[in-house]
Design a binder for these strands. Structure first.
Length: 218
DNA sequence: ACCCAGGTGTTTC
DNA sequence: GAAACACATGGG
């Protein structure tokens, strides 16, 4: 069931060969990748299921709140009620509103934010840790950064690996891809961007992890 | 009734 | 520093 692998490239090959892995319409997997919506989703999805995020994002869309200006100005109680299903709704609402205001203040608009924001700036925001920062960097800004989430940590742990911290896992994942880039090109095409490979690799990890769980794997 | 979910921040030893 | 706790709803 679980792969016997030496490096992250071998894990990627294993996951790509798994049948029944759902393929997303979005080529980066995250719905509406490259847009501001990913920033909001990265906060909302913390410790909850993606289905709840979809519901909440639709609420925001229906109220025309899914943009920097509206989110930073809207009534906090209203925002709380719209994202309630995601859990931790009070702190998520407050942190999301602060984040939007800070993006406007520091960058002016989303396009400038996309071009100029750093990982350090994201990590300095209350409510954004390593995973949320990297999700935003990769799926909203297409930077060459691979997300490490709970699924990834558990899968690697079950494969027998032991890592010291987040950075060590991330480096292991990224290095295995970089060191085997010629072979990665055979899978994804000539000159494929590392950003896209990292995004789809992470996606495979998530989909595979969900799948083995449904099958009752421990 | 319990446990987990695509985390993060604060408090405590 | 790491370990424990708080944040909260929803579905199995």
């Amino acid at each position: 069931m679980l792969p016997n692998i030496e490096n992250s490239f071998e894990l990627l090959v294993f996951l790509k060969n798994q049948l029944l892995l759902k393929d997303s319409k979005d080529e980066f997997w995250w719905e509406n990748s490259g847009s501001f919506e990913v920033v909001v989703g990265a906060i909302l999805v913390q410790n909850t299921k993606w289905e709840n995020v979809i519901f909440s994002l639709n609420n925001l869309k229906n109220q025309n709140l899914l943009n920097l200006e509206s989110l930073s100005n809207c009534d906090l109680r209203l925002l709380e009620s719209l994202i309630m299903k995601c859990g931790f709704f009070r702190q998520k609402a407050q942190r999301l509103q602060n984040l939007c205001a800070n993006i406007l203040e520091s960058f002016g608009d989303f396009e400038n934010f996309k071009e100029n924001v750093s990982r350090e700036w994201l990590l300095s925001q209350k409510g954004i840790g390593f995973e949320s920062a990297d999700s935003i960097l990769n799926y909203a800004l297409y930077r060459e950064v691979m997300v490490v989430d709970r699924y990834t940590q558990r899968l690697l742990s079950e494969c027998g690996f032991e890592f010291y911290d987040y950075d060590e896992i991330q480096n292991w994942l990224q290095n295995g891809i970089i060191e085997n880039y010629e072979r990665v090109e055979n899978l994804y095409g000539k000159n494929v961007s590392l950003a896209k490979v990292y995004a789809r690799f992470h996606a495979k990890i998530v989909e595979f992890s969900k799948q083995i769980k449904i099958k009752g794997e421990k």
